[in-house]
Design a protein around this nucleic acid. Sequence first.
DNA 1: TTTCTTCTGTAACATACATCACCCATCAGC
DNA 2: GCTGATGGGTGATGTATGTTACAGAAGAAA
Lengths: 204, 204
Amino acid sequence: MAEIKENLFHSLLNKEVFETAQINSFSAGTVILNIHAYIKSIPIVLSGSIKVIQTDEEGREILLYYIKPGESCIMSFLAGIHNDSSKIKAIVEEDAEILLIPVEKASEWIKKFPEWTDFIFNLYQKRFEELLEVVNAVAFQKMDTRLLQLLNQKSALFHSKEISVTHQQLADELGTTREAVSRVLKQMENSKLIALSRNRISIL
Amino acid sequence: MAEIKENLFHSLLNKEVFETAQINSFSAGTVILNIHAYIKSIPIVLSGSIKVIQTDEEGREILLYYIKPGESCIMSFLAGIHNDSSKIKAIVEEDAEILLIPVEKASEWIKKFPEWTDFIFNLYQKRFEELLEVVNAVAFQKMDTRLLQLLNQKSALFHSKEISVTHQQLADELGTTREAVSRVLKQMENSKLIALSRNRISIL
DNA sequence: TTTCTTCTGTAACATACATCACCCATCAGC
DNA sequence: GCTGATGGGTGATGTATGTTACAGAAGAAA
């Protein structure tokens, strides 16, 4: 974490950023940002990770992307500067330390610090591309492909081939049902791609 | 068009913007921006409209959103300032007049004109929300709902209850097949929601 | 251990959509 | 008018995923 902070400090943020911001710790599962909530501060992840999901009226969910160390939630930035409410939900995936920046500062800095603007635009592009991938996956890919991708994503995130997750959680993130996930996982186990046990999937 | 130009001029752009930019005319069907193309200028639509679609490797498409007068293609802005290639395809839907702004100017103005930055951020938010809706629609909605929404969108765009379009075109925009579209349309006709004829759909 | 809860496996069936196949309708050009 | 091209209608069939329903497995609690 100290490392990330140093990087941010040197490469894109300056003293004022760190002096203004507060650092907070959140444990896995905490809902950082809920749908329809109004936003007063913008989070920058220092350690851990946050997952951003969309929920529809009927409560169905779908994973949009992860926010990793050094990144921020661009949706909250947008909603924040427009004084609008959030359209998405953000949940801590791994215990995280987060820098909270008041919205007014965030928009003030756009005028003052070109590096900050760059940082924001870079994130925009990244998030846009990730959203395009989600659209593609949902529109054209079958569950097996999507599941495998999700497992690999999680494996990379946790730096481990062992993933602690229930089928229901995966189903929620993919916007499908537990049974569908169980079926596909079982097939993947039969093809020796993964090994299954309660609350745990190992990628082979 | 003169009206839009005046509005842009007064509300968010200034003299320099119009002096720098060129106005070009494009007729319906023109591909303004292709996937993998590098971007040297950013379009602002003055009249007509542009549709932005995503295509995957297998050539399947899906409509993302429309760019209407007074708006710009934010993807090209992002890709432009990062000197990256386009991930999407933009096609003129209605004959359009477009202001072309060189990328260097676009990023220069971020520092110079707060109104320009506001304009950009506003668009970002709008596009983000539209993408979220696409994700939702593709993930959770059935074809009948999606088709109806698309027809209403087109009807609003063309300011007409009569839409000139083939079933195949609709299928492409929804990322499905012609047969599926034909069947659903026929049902909708039976429910007196629309009337069908060759190359034309009338919303009742 | 026994009991309870949560997670997983799986069968049977329903449904939406894709795919294939073909015919008919409409319209443009001759 | 005829002819050919494009667009549209529709049945048959396949397949992925949703739905319902229930049983067994693995842990947690007692």
